[in-house]
Amino acid sequence: MSAAPLVQVDDLQMRFDVSAPWLNRVLERKPKQFVHAVDGISFHIQRGQTLALVGESGCGKSTVARLLVGLYRPSGGDVRFEGRSTRDWFAAADAPALRRRLQMIFQDPYASLNPRWKVRDIVAEPLREHALVVNAAEAEARVGELLSQVGLNPADASKFPHQFSGGQRQRISIARALATAPEFLVCDEPTSALDVSVQAQVLNLMRDLQQKNGLTYLFISHNLAVVHHMADEVGVMYLGRLVELSDKKRLFAQPRHPYTRMLLDAIPDIQLTGRQRAAVQGEVPNPLSPPSGCSFHPRCPHANERCKTERPVLSEFQGIRVACHAVAEGRL
C-alpha cells in the first residue's frame, strides 16, 4: 500500500437548484431554492482498499458516487486521483485516460443495461470507445474473457439482458466495468436489487476480483451486513455530511456517534438479546430546510443548546473521526 492515497476528497460539495420556474418565483415573490446534497465531506482511499459509505436514503451517498466518476461537476471542493484534480482532468485532452482508470457499477442491473443490445455489444462498448481492440475478432475474444472472469459462459455474449436473472445481469455490469482494466471502481449499492443468496455470490465475486486485480473500491450501501463483509473503512453519512469515519472493526465494536449507534442497534442480533438498545427516533429532516447546528440534533438523545446552534467539525478522537459535540465534551 502506497503512502499517498489513490483517491483524495477534500471539502466536496454539491448543491442542486430545485427552484420553481422563473415566472412562478416572480409572481409568488419566492427566492431560489437549493438542496445541499453533499455538504463538505472529506476522505481518502488507499490503493487496494475499500471505503464504504452508509446512511439512510437521501443522505447523499449516490451523489458522492456520481461526483467521483465525473457524472456531476462539484459545486465546491475537490477530488484528486493520484494527486491530480479530476475537475481539471475530466475537461483536459487526456480525460479518456482517467475514465479508463475509474468505472462505476450502478444499483439496478435491470435499468443499467440496454435491453436492445446483446451482451457482446454491452461489454464491448468501452473496449471500442477507448480503442482497446482493433477488430471484431479481438473484441469477441476479450468479451469472452471478461464474461468468464465474472462467472458467466462466453457463449452468453449472444444473448439479450432479459434472458438473464438479476444476479447474472449484475455480473454483466461488472464485466462491462472491468473492460477497461480500471484501478478504481465506484459501486453504488450494486446488490440492493438482488436476493440475499445472490447478493452473497456477487459480493464474493467482487472481493475475489479485488484481490486478483488489486482494485480499489468506493462501496455505497445502506446494508450494514454487506458493509461489514466488504469494507476496510466505513464512513457514516447524514444529510450530506460525514458524521463518523473509522476502520471497520473499530466502528462496529465501538461506534461513537449517536446516529451510528442507532444504525447498529437497528440490526437484529440474537446474541445481543437483553442488551439495552436505543430505538431509531424521528424522521430525516427536510433537506430544503435542514436544522441549524448539528443536523442530527432533533433526533439525538444527547443534544444540548450547543448542538442546536454550532455545527460540529469532523475531528479525531482515539483513532476515530467523529463530528459530535457530545463526544468532544466527553458526554458520550
Rank of each mutant, 00 (worst) to 15 (best):
M1D: 09
S2F: 06
V7Q: 03
R15F: 10
V18M: 08
V18S: 07
S19C: 12
A20W: 09
K30R: 15
K32E: 12
A37E: 10
V38D: 00
I41G: 00
L51P: 02
A52S: 15
A52Y: 00
L53T: 11
L53S: 01
K61F: 10
R66Q: 08
G70Y: 12
G76E: 06
D78G: 05
F81S: 03
A91S: 08
A92H: 15
A93W: 03
A93D: 11
A93K: 14
L98P: 07
R99V: 15
R99L: 09
R101A: 07
F106Q: 03
F106K: 03
F106L: 11
D108W: 00
S112R: 09
L113D: 00
L113F: 02
R120P: 08
E125M: 10
P126Y: 15
L127F: 07
R128S: 02
R128M: 09
R128T: 04
A137G: 01
A137M: 06
A137F: 06
L146F: 04
S148R: 13
Q149I: 12
P154R: 04
A155G: 08
D156H: 13
A157N: 01
S158D: 14
K159A: 12
Q168E: 06
R169Y: 06
Q170S: 08
A177Q: 09
A177M: 11
F184M: 05
F184T: 05
F184Y: 09
V196Q: 03
S197H: 08
G214M: 05
G214I: 12
L218N: 13
F219I: 07
S221T: 15
L224E: 00
V226C: 08
V226T: 10
V226M: 08
V227P: 01
H228M: 00
H229F: 14
H229D: 07
D232R: 01
V234K: 02
V234N: 00
M237D: 03
R241C: 07
E244L: 04
K249C: 00
F252T: 04
A253I: 14
T260D: 01
R261N: 12
D269F: 05
I270L: 12
A278C: 06
A278S: 13
A279P: 12
V280Q: 04
E283R: 15
V284G: 01
P287Y: 05
S289L: 11
G293S: 03
C294Q: 00
E310Q: 11
P312S: 15
F317M: 08
Q318W: 04
I320F: 00
V322I: 01
E329D: 13
L332I: 14
L332Q: 10
L332M: 15
